[in-house]
Structures are given as C-alpha cells and as structure tokens.
Design a protein around this nucleic acid. Structure first.
Lengths: 229, 229
DNA sequence: TTGTCATTTCTACGGGGATCGAAACATCGG
DNA sequence: CCGATGTTTCGATCCCCGTAGAAATGACAA
C-alpha cells in the first residue's frame, strides 16, 4: 500500500466520533470488552463491532479473546502518545464548561497515559528524579543512575531486565508542556505505585488519586503536593 | 463547548482525506494559496475553499490575505508535530512500494518539519551539538552553552532574543525515534542554513538537500555524511 | 442437551457531507 | 473602465458510511 494512502486511512479511522471516543476510552492502556465500549459511546454492539474491526485492521488496536469476551486495547504506546497529543491540540483554546471542568482538572492533576504517569504528578515525579541525580537525561531517554537504581531495588520495583535501564520520554502534556517518564520502566514504576497503595485509580476512567500514604512517601522523595486545596 | 466535543471536531477535521492531504502539503511550514492546495489534492477550488474554511475555523490553519491570493499555513508548530507523529504512526508497518520508495527515502534523509530540520540530518545535527557540549539537555529543552552561542554569533545566526537561548525538542521522527532541535532557535538555524547555501530545498515539497559546501562545513562540525551513495 | 450471554456477520436503510457548477466578489493589469 | 485571475458563496446532487435489526457463532452454566 502507498504510504500516503495509509496515512489517509489512519486519519479516516480517527475521523469518526464514536471510534475516537472508544480510542480515548482506552487511553488508560487497559483492555476493555466490546460491549462496554459500545455502551460507552452509545451505539449498538453490532455497530461497535464493525468499528472495532476497522481499528484493529488499521493497527490502532489489538484484540485479546478470552472466553466469550473480546478485550480490546491500544496497539502500542505510540498510539496513546498520538492521542494525547491530539487532546493537547484540541484543548488550549477553551476555558472549560462547568461540568467538564472538574473532570479536566482531575485529569490534568494526575492520570495514566497508556501505562505510565502523566499530568502534573507525572511531571513532578520526573523532575524529582532529575533533580536528585537519579537519572541522566540523554538523547535516548532518561538513563537510570546507580542512586536511582538503588531506590528501585530496595523499593522492589521489578521489570524485565532490558540492557541499560532507560526511561523513555514523552513530550507533550495537556497542561505541563514538558517531557516525563514513559516506556517499560515507567510502566513498572506505575504498577508498583498502584500495588503499594501510593496511588489509586479515581472514579473517572484515567484519573489517579494520591493516597495519604502516597503523599508522605512522595514528599520524602522531593515531590511536594501540587495544591493542598 | 465541551472539551470532549472539541476533540471529536479535531478528529473529524483530519478524517477527510483531502483535508489531510492539504495539511500534509503544508507540513513544511510555508504558506500556500488556496488554488494550489486544491490542485494538489485533485479537487475543484470551490470544494477546497470549503475545506479550508473548516480547517481555519477548527484552529488548524491560519490564513493570510495578500491581494487576490489567500495564503494558508499551519496554525502553530504543535499542529505540525502532531501530523508528523501521525505519519510516524502510519509508517512503521509497510515495506515501501516502488514509486513511493525514493520519495520516502528522501524525506527520511532530510526534510523540514514546519520550520526546523528533521529526518536523519536533523538528528545528526542535534547529536553533534550535544556531543560537542554546545548544548545542555534540560527538562525544558536544549539549553545553548557559551561554546554553542559563540558559534551562532560568529556564523551570524540571528533570532529574536528570548531570555535564555533554548532549543525546544520534538520527539518522534519517522525513522529516527529520538528528539531533535525544534522551536524558534531551530527555525533561525534552518533559515540560516538555507540562506548560506549549506542546504537547498529539494524537488519534493518538504525535502532538503545538502550541498557540497554544506557537507564540508557540516563535516567540520562533526556531522558525517549519512551515506555517500 | 438447552438456554443465555457476548460478540460477530449480514443486509438494508437513511442521512450527513463531499462534490461540482454557476454566479458573485475581490484584485490586478492594462 | 475593461477583462482576466484567484477565491468564495450558494444551491443541488449523489454517494459513502454509520447505523440498527435479525440471525449466526462461540462459550459458559445447568
């Protein structure tokens, strides 16, 4: 297929509101069964199935069959990054409406993007590591230094050993316009934070809430509470 | 307007093949009259005018009226970055067709993205600066150090003085997946390279070709010819 | 087996939007 | 003032595609 043609195909895929809605719903990186996605955007399962088929064929989603359910999820982090950037592109103009305001605020505060932390929390977390000298900024990403590695080991954050420990970075953020941790290592970190109870998933799909335990522990590591409101 | 709704609007805008084609045509950051855009994607001027109106209303394009011409261009670098990322997302799967192959190769080699260098050349250029210690990598971007500043001054690269000299970075690249220079300073650099004749615009819209002069000068700065084929 | 649930396939329908032509508008050249 | 050129507006047409319902598939439970 002509590369140009493929570009158009990708555009068309995201050009349909229900499809885009389903993609956004999957931005947290978790898998979701077809029926739930259909309900989320308000269409019949048959219609949703058609859309999902197109998205899988287009390489934006992957599907995992388990019993009578079929779980759909974003194909790779690049898709999530691209969608996040689209959101950043769509956001800047508007002062928010009333109902969307709190939702927007929660998402800007702390959320997951595919598999890693994003929003203000993600940025602060990254900055703390940089300032403590736990990572080096390199062209390829954030390279973990011995001090940072020591913390990871004692804390018990585990990941598949992939050569030099590198935390990828990921440019745009809705509010903060600076890079932050991404990639497999960041995924491990985030999972670890969830399991240890530093953070929990919020009521709105992608939001994250820091627990009291989390704030004290984060504070000890140099991450101050963004706003104690 | 609901933020979610605006997201859908953005998606719909880019979901139309002709519209997307026009956006891609404008990826070099230069302005283009309506008629040329219409011809480029193979539609009548009246239809193109309608599309362009939608794109301007949606905040993706800006228009500059000059005489009987109306020049359209991308609204801001973020739009270009997003489109580049879309291209990166669309690219990876396909081994190229025959005719598109050379075009793709030229674009991967060296091109402009909105206003700065991209492709292999952009990455090498950035890497050379980092390795020479002419810039520091910081969270906000590449901070120009005295040595780099000295080169800029003697070479005569001029830009509006904007506090500390920072070269923004820009994540994804079709082939190279590493950040490279972007932003106003990068724009000044690129314009300077064009005016001094280090590089010239190629036959295909966004491509850049390095001249003999350019290769020798770049070589002196530590940028080796990617492939002397 | 039978029944139910989650999902897909198929078919037909309907509407939104992309398209074009014609005409109006604006600008430039003479 | 004239015609030519670039662009937009308006109106009408047509087609693609999103949609839902009905039926088929597969999986789990009893």
């Amino acid at each position: 297929m002509e590369p140009e043609q493929r570009l158009m195909e990708m555009g068309s895929l995201v050009g349909e509101p229900r499809r885009l809605g389903m993609l956004v719903r999957l931005l947290d990186g978790q898998a979701c069964p077809a029926g739930e996605l259909a309900h989320h955007v308000g269409i019949r399962p048959s219609t949703a199935s058609h859309h999902l088929d197109l998205l899988v064929r287009g390489g934006l989603l992957t599907v995992l069959t388990q019993g009578r359910h079929r779980y759909y999820r974003l194909a790779n982090p690049a898709v999530a990054a691209w969608l996040e950037q689209l959101a950043a592109l769509a956001a800047p103009a508007t002062p928010r409406s009333l109902r969307g305001a709190t939702e927007q605020r929660l998402l800007a505060e702390a959320r997951t993007c595919y598999d890693h932390l994003a929003g203000r929390l993600g940025v602060l977390w990254t900055r703390a590591w940089v300032e403590r000298g736990w990572v080096d900024e390199t062209v390829e990403g954030y390279l973990v230094r011995p001090a940072g590695l020591a913390w990871l080991c004692t804390a018990g954050v585990t990941t598949a050993p992939t050569g030099p420990l590198v935390l990828g970075r990921h440019e745009v953020d809705w509010t903060e316009r600076v890079p932050h941790f991404a990639g497999p290592m960041a995924r491990a970190m985030t999972r670890w934070m969830l399991t240890t109870g530093w953070v929990v998933r919020g009521p709105i799909p992608r939001t994250i809430q820091v627990t009291n335990l989390g704030w004290t522990e984060l504070g000890a590591l140099g991450v101050a509470a963004p706003r104690p409101t």
